[in-house]
Design a protein around this nucleic acid. Sequence first.
DNA 1: CCCCTTCTGGTACATTCGTGCCATTCGGTG
DNA 2: CACCGAATGGCACGAATGTACCAGAAGGGG
Lengths: 207, 207
Amino acid sequence: MYQKGEQRRAHILRATLRLIGARGADAVTHRAVAEEACVPLAATTYYFASKEQLLEQTLLLAAREETERLERLVGELAPLSLGPCEWAAAVAAQLSTDLEAEPAKHVALFELALEATRTAVLKEEVREWQAAHLRLAELGCRAVGSSDPQLDARVVVAALTGLMLEQLSSGESNFGEAVMRPALERLFTQLARESETTVEPAAARIA
Amino acid sequence: MYQKGEQRRAHILRATLRLIGARGADAVTHRAVAEEACVPLAATTYYFASKEQLLEQTLLLAAREETERLERLVGELAPLSLGPCEWAAAVAAQLSTDLEAEPAKHVALFELALEATRTAVLKEEVREWQAAHLRLAELGCRAVGSSDPQLDARVVVAALTGLMLEQLSSGESNFGEAVMRPALERLFTQLARESETTVEPAAARIA
DNA sequence: CCCCTTCTGGTACATTCGTGCCATTCGGTG
DNA sequence: CACCGAATGGCACGAATGTACCAGAAGGGG
């Protein structure tokens, strides 16, 4: 009983997410959300105590969904014992198709990161979110035989974040994979290379 | 003659930048900017045709300043023929101190990237900005003897972007270097490692 | 059946917003 | 000196905003 409300609440969150992706976080007003969700104005104030809460909850939703999605992806890929290049191809394919399918969600996630700069609650959430990313990347790094999976995971997460932002902010539509795959191949293969000797700073430099 | 105006214009842009860093892009209103800059309300409309122009110009300013700063940094470092670890240390030090000195500017730059998602003019600017980054990174990659400087530059730029965002959105204040330096060391040393043989996908995987 | 909580949808209001207007001052030029 | 464009600053207007309020529909439990 009384579960209709939850559906409407979710519907409003979806609409807000679409709005953030299309017109930015500052386009999120009660009226704009209400129109996007096709609900009366009062609905948005009924389900959310304030505009800030609405925005916050929407960003949390996006972050959690994305984390689940990634967990599923790594869960599928990890048991296959792929090499670095296959990992790169799989990850690049997944990310670029997802970027094109739901750019709004990913834009929203970056908005989340920026909002977190100013909001303690969100900062905490971003930390958990990144921790999840690190765990997943670490799993992947272990799978390709990284010699320092924790450190490499950090590098990989940072690189993926940067590539995604690049695609969103300056990419032509749908050439994402062409850019991401070679970069990821290169990154993964180089990180996966075993150090035959302990790395000595100057030794890696060409004479 | 009549150069006072330019100063005031610049003053307003600075204030706007501070505002973006402190309270986000949607906190940029004529009134808020005027107060932050200690100028009357009409000044912001006198120097900028609209709120959007004000925001846009501010972001362009930040992007160009940052590019110049990076060019200076690479210009200093490149002739020293450093190894990957020294590069990592220098870059990590520079970025983390700068992140702490002027977080507002870097937050603003990410806001720029997000706005570019929706604004054609900004998207073009972001492209130029990233092209500059790529050129600089490529220079650095060449300096450490990368076997594919263009590709590696892409990876490096993405990783740096990701690390910066991580620091801004979830980092404790001022432990940036402790996080960034090891990651960069790892990335640079692995990228700098020569491939003795042509990289063959499966060969890099541990048996 | 009635009641009470949940939910709906319409409206009102104070505040804040972007922007246009205009009288005034400044500072260099003729 | 007079002049004139550049710059200033105060103000007002219409539009949009967040949110409170309220009258009622819905629908399951007594």
